[in-house]
């Protein structure tokens, strides 16, 4: 089932010196329960495109549909809160909250009680392979792999159906990389999430069901 579709999406912005066309006329679609990779060189526009899919900004041209509904017409904050979660290369955890509190936060935003959120968060942390003691630790005390797992647990905690990951393994060693990729793959294939990762790591791309390639802002399906 198609869950996300981009139709002729372009995005440009005015930098200090010139107008930059980051995404040019991109059309593609993503289905539920699939694991996607978007590859490309640095500056090819893949991260920008992912942000557009996450509703963090609006396309200059074209439309992104979420289950047939244009994202432009939706409450983009509610979209991110309920349907699409983002995982970043640099994790972007709240440094002053513990791992558990970071995971609890999206649930609490959705009015889930603190007690239930804490219980769920602990389960999710176990699910992503973290020991219970990690739950009480602050991000600074964790390794990169552990932080990324917490970020993935937080994405799952939001309860949406789309996980958008921007270079999720970019800061990880090969062992952690494999673990994170396996986790994302599991979320797609077993839990039915649509997982889209941005990567320029061939090994990661090979683990996905479909690979899109971006070059100079344009998209082409590689596999």
């Amino acid at each position: 089932m198609e869950i996300l579709r981009a139709e002729h999406v372009s995005y440009s912005y005015q930098s200090k010196y010139q107008k930059v066309e980051a995404v040019k006329d991109v059309s593609c679609s993503f289905e539920q329960g699939k694991f996607y990779a978007i590859v490309g060189e640095s500056g090819s526009g893949k991260s920008t495109f992912l942000s557009l899919l996450a509703g963090l900004d609006s396309p200059s041209e074209g439309v992104i549909y979420v289950q047939g509904e244009p994202l432009n017409g939706m409450d983009r904050d509610a979209y991110r809160l309920n349907r699409a979660a983002v995982v970043y290369q640099s994790f972007h955890l709240f440094p002053l909250l513990t791992a558990r509190e970071n995971v609890m936060l999206p649930m609490e935003f959705k009015k889930i009680s603190r007690k239930d959120a804490a219980r769920q968060a602990q389960k999710l942390l176990s699910r992503v392979g973290l020991e219970p003691r990690i739950g009480g630790q602050f991000p600074k005390m964790m390794s990169g792999g552990e932080q990324q797992r917490v970020a993935i647990a937080r994405a799952v905690a939001s309860g949406g159906e789309i996980i958008l990951a921007d270079e999720p393994t970019g800061n990880l060693d090969s062992e952690n990389e494999a673990n994170v990729v396996a986790l994302l793959k599991e979320l797609a294939h077993e839990d039915g999430y649509t997982v889209i990762v941005i990567t320029h790591n061939q090994r990661v791309a090979e683990e996905t069901d479909h690979v899109f390639c971006m070059k100079d802002g344009r998209m082409e399906q590689a596999r």
């Binding site: 904050d77 809160l81 309920n82 979660a85 983002v86 972007h92 935003f109 937080r154 939001s158």
Partner: peptide, 13 residues
């Protein structure tokens, strides 16, 4: 700024 960005990314208005 990052904190605000994370909160926005998590769907906060």
């Amino acid at each position: 700024g990052e904190r605000t960005a994370i909160e926005r990314a998590l769907g906060l208005q």
